[in-house]
Amino acid sequence: MSIAPTHMATVPGTVTSWYEASARTRIRLLLDPGSFMEFIGPEKREVSPHLKVFDLPEQFDDGIVVGRGTLGGSKVLIAAQEGRFMGGAFGEVHGAKLTGLLRAARDIGSVPVLILFDTGGVRLQEANAGELAIAEIMRAVIEAREAGAKVIGLIGGRAGCYGGGGLIAGCCSGLVVSEQGRIAVSGPEVIETNRGVEEFDSRDRALVWRTMGGKHRRLLGGAEVFVDDTGQAFRDAALMLLGQVGGFELSTLTNEQARLEARLRDFGGCADAVDIWTAQGIADAATIPALPADQFIALADRFGRISHDAR
């Protein structure tokens, strides 16, 4: 166990993959240089009080970095999950740091929150505390949005955005996703364990990507912006999305109800993502998983569903 240095020495342009980057590197790639200030950083050693019961190592930041900074010169609050620690899972301390950040955003009302998801969901070794943390975060996201704060999720890490993380993502004002950014509630292994390999073969990686991956979520309207796997692309998309997403009021929910009802009506009978993409009018839908990012973005701009003011 060691404290990761806040500013790791990297040569610009060498570590640009969002997927490969650590939580701290992602924050540095995203925000204006030198603008980040962390709250309850690793030097405070606020570790999980529960992991020692399982003889598991602790991490001094409990796998999440929260703080403030600027993006394009404007103030933002930011939280980044570390997918390499316990799969980025929500534990008591981990979750409470994000809850506090969101409640501050509610109190301020005008400063947006960026959540860099990288999570398998609830940390099962402290399952009750983690589950409740997610419930508190969902409520805090809604309270922040009601108060006028935009909450943007960025998803493209190793752990994806699973379990309760998927529900929190669904509460955000908007989402940026890369191809690697899987969003789902039940993970592939969990579906296979409970329902059998006939229902979902977790070792079929192509099936996992096209069912839960970023391309499908973008085409379906589950995420607003698809980006290539670079820090610069996520930064540009976050800036763009902050200028586009709507508020949170009754019409947001009635629009979302209509949006999701239309999805069930149009695609509810489809057995596979390729069938959905075909039903969306895309020719050669089976080639989508192999499309380079720039070609996919052009295609998604034509055929993908939009969810502004409806989430």
Partner: peptide
Amino acid sequence: MSKRDELLGLNEFLAHLGKC
């Protein structure tokens, strides 16, 4: 827990219910 529910974006449907 099913392929169909995840394919259709179950996280959005559950989040939407919670939000309502």
